[in-house]
Simulated assay, not measured.
Amino acid sequence: MQHLTLFERLSPIAAVLLLAACATAPQAPARLGLRLVPAALGETISVQQQLTVERAGTTNDLVAALEVDPQHVSLVGLAMGMRVLSLDFDGREVKEWRHAMLPSQVRAADVLEDLQLTLWPLAEIARALPPGWTIVDDGLRRTLSRDGAVVATVSYSTMPRWQGTAVLDNVRYGYRLTVVSATE
Results as ranks from 00 to 15, higher is better:
M1P: 12
Q2H: 06
R9P: 12
R9C: 13
S11C: 02
V16K: 05
A21E: 14
A21F: 09
C22W: 04
A23N: 06
T24D: 11
P26E: 15
A28E: 15
P29M: 05
L36R: 07
S46I: 02
V47I: 10
L51P: 07
A56T: 08
G57M: 10
G57K: 09
D61E: 13
V63C: 09
V68W: 12
V68N: 11
V73P: 10
S74N: 15
S74R: 14
V76D: 12
A79T: 06
L85T: 11
S86N: 01
D88C: 08
R92I: 09
V94T: 15
S104R: 15
A109C: 05
V111L: 09
L115T: 03
Q116T: 00
Q116E: 02
L117R: 09
L117F: 09
L117Y: 11
W120Q: 13
L122R: 07
A126F: 03
P130L: 07
P130D: 13
P130H: 04
L144W: 14
G148H: 07
V151E: 15
T153A: 12
T158L: 09
M159A: 10
W162N: 11
A166L: 05
R172K: 13
Y173L: 02
Y175R: 02
A182M: 02
A182R: 00
A182L: 04
